[in-house]
Write a protein that binds this DNA or RNA. Structure first.
Length: 474
RNA sequence: GUCAGGGUAGCUCAGCUGGUAGAGCACCACAUUCAUAACGUGGCGGUCGUGGGAUCGAAGCCCACCCCUGACACCA
């Protein structure tokens, strides 16, 4: 059986889920479900990036242990996935010393053995109050933006990864689509970035500054690994790297990393460089979605246009939330969310479109009182959808399915079956019911709960009237 | 500033190997019950960012300019 391993980006735990994460989860889940329906052995991984000083301080503030705090944060993310019908197979936490640390350290050792890790002193502007480095551009009149005190110039020895060494190799891999970066717009940006020259990057911090949080650097008790080396490795440790070789062998390399455009560089360049160094297989595709604005503007607290995903799900339900993000937002480009647009779409597509269609068909079926035998018990996705899906334009694919809804609505109006009676009506309805069953099947990757409801109602031989699936918004 | 993408009906967009503008939503009218006053039919609606240019002919090609978005490194 073919395996299909897909990941979301690993969110930084102490943030709250926002609409961008919602988009990413939904897209990832839709692709995963599609492959699952093709009969592949699918693993969807998500997780949490936890090894940060901020979490230590936040825990201190609340008077609980770091682990307790992280458990709390992580629970939020896990729950969030389920409210969106995301089928998560693995939730990997980077705080876990049993299943995460060994793999990252193994990766480090391989890179080290390849001669790609070296020590170098790093000079930065450090604020003691914040316990963090600032770039000059982040300072406010040369002072820490938080404390308004002058930062100290701190010099520290850190480990660096020799990314520069892999510049040409990475470029060739992306140019040849060995590592496919989509959309092409982003691929071009990555290539032009590489052409501008790659520099080595820092992959460790001193234990003191990290307050002991993080993956220990092998053979150097004074250093822990820093953000990206640690976080990216989650994609491998989650499926067993370092603690379950067999499982890792089975699923690695990832077929697809789904990420936002803000972290493209780390995935398309750093990550590839690290894996090249360790001589490990490379992910096949890096799928980059856009960002969501609201009312044509970036969401920001000062404008007051921040969309809370919980509010969206609460108002319209998980199915419609998924529908909006898949149907309205361009799959690989920036999109927009407003409640007024959501209301419009809900009314026109859900209530008046699909909802009304199933009502009228169910009512006609109930009128005949005849049964509609199933032509197959294990229906598969239509070839039309399968062909479309390979282009990875989820919006186009969903629209293709949705077109069937409107075509069928129109067909009913044209044919006026309600003027028919008895056998004639029953004969007419058989293919109509069949078409609804096809629609229900094809909707599965996109809106699984809704598809399930439809499949159940129209999948029985005796079809009764159905209560409105989507009551009008009041 | 450099590079990339974009500016087409009120809204979201399609059209871009050049031949005189399309769809959906919204709005209006008509029709109508199988259906969630839903569906259907028709209509309203556009100096195709601005100004030049080559062409018999441009939204589409060339030039200039304006506006928006993104990338330009250690960044969550």
């Amino acid at each position: 059986m073919n395996t299909f391993y897909i990941t979301t980006a690993i969110p930084y735990v102490n943030g709250k889920p926002h609409i961008g994460h919602t988009l990413e989860f939904v897209q990832t889940d839709t692709i995963a479900r599609f492959h699952r329906l093709l009969g592949e052995d699918v693993v969807l991984l998500t997780g949490s990036d936890e090894n940060s000083l901020k979490n230590v301080r936040a825990a201190e503030k609340e008077g609980i242990t770091t682990k307790e705090l992280l458990d709390k944060y992580t629970a939020v993310w896990k729950a969030f996935g389920s409210t969106l019908d995301i089928k998560v197979d693995i939730f990997q936490r980077s705080f876990n010393p049993e299943t995460h640390f060994p793999g990252v350290q193994k990766l480090w050792e391989l890179c080290d053995k390849a001669g790609d890790i070296y020590k170098k002193s790093y000079t930065g502007l450090y604020c003691v109050g914040c316990e963090q480095f600032y770039k000059e551009s982040e300072l406010k009149d040369g002072l820490c933006p938080q404390h308004l005190t002058p930062p100290e110039v701190v010099n520290e020895e850190n480990y660096f990864f020799k990314l520069s060494r892999y510049q040409n190799e990475i470029k060739e891999l992306i140019e040849s689509d060995t590592v496919q970066v989509i959309p092409t717009k982003i691929r071009k940006e990555v290539l032009s970035f590489i052409e501008s020259g790659l520099e080595d990057f820092s992959i460790s911090r001193s234990v003191e500054r990290a307050r002991g949080v993080g993956v220990p650097v092998p053979n150097d008790p004074k250093q822990v690994m820093y953000v990206w080396f640690d976080a990216l490795a989650i994609y491998m440790t989650g499926i067993g790297y370092g603690w379950d070789e067999e499982k890792w062998q089975k699923y690695w390399p990832a077929n697809m990393h789904v990420i936002g455009k803000d972290i493209v560089r780390f995935h398309a360049i750093y990550w590839i460089g690290m894996l090249l160094s360790a001589k490990l297989p490379l992910p096949k595709t890096i799928f980059v979605h856009g960002h969501i604005a609201s009312g044509g503007q970036k969401m920001s607290k000062s404008i007051g246009n921040v969309i809370d995903p919980y509010e969206v799900i609460g108002k319209y339900g998980a199915d419609f939330t998924r529908f909006y993000l898949l149907y309205e937002v361009p799959t690989l480009d920036d999109g927009d969310f407003t409640f007024s647009r959501a209301d419009e779409l809900y009314t026109s597509e859900f209530a008046n479109g699909l909802g009304n269609l199933v009502s009228r068909v169910a009512a006609l079926c109930a009128k005949t009182g005849i049964t509609y035998p199933l032509t197959t018990t294990n229906r598969s996705l239509s070839t039309e959808l399968i062909d479309s899906f390979t282009a990875l334009d989820l919006r186009e694919s969903l629209r293709l399915v949705w077109k069937r809804v409107w075509d069928l609505n129109k067909k009913l109006s044209d044919d006026e079956p309600w003027k028919k009676e008895g056998d004639e009506l029953a004969t007419y309805l058989a293919p109509v019911v069949e078409e609804i069953r096809v629609i229900a099947t094809d909707l599965q990757p996109f809106v699984p709960t809704l598809a399930g409801k439809l499949g159940e109602h129209f999948g029985s031989e005796k079809i009764e009237k159905i209560a409105p699936l989507f009551p009008k918004l009041t």
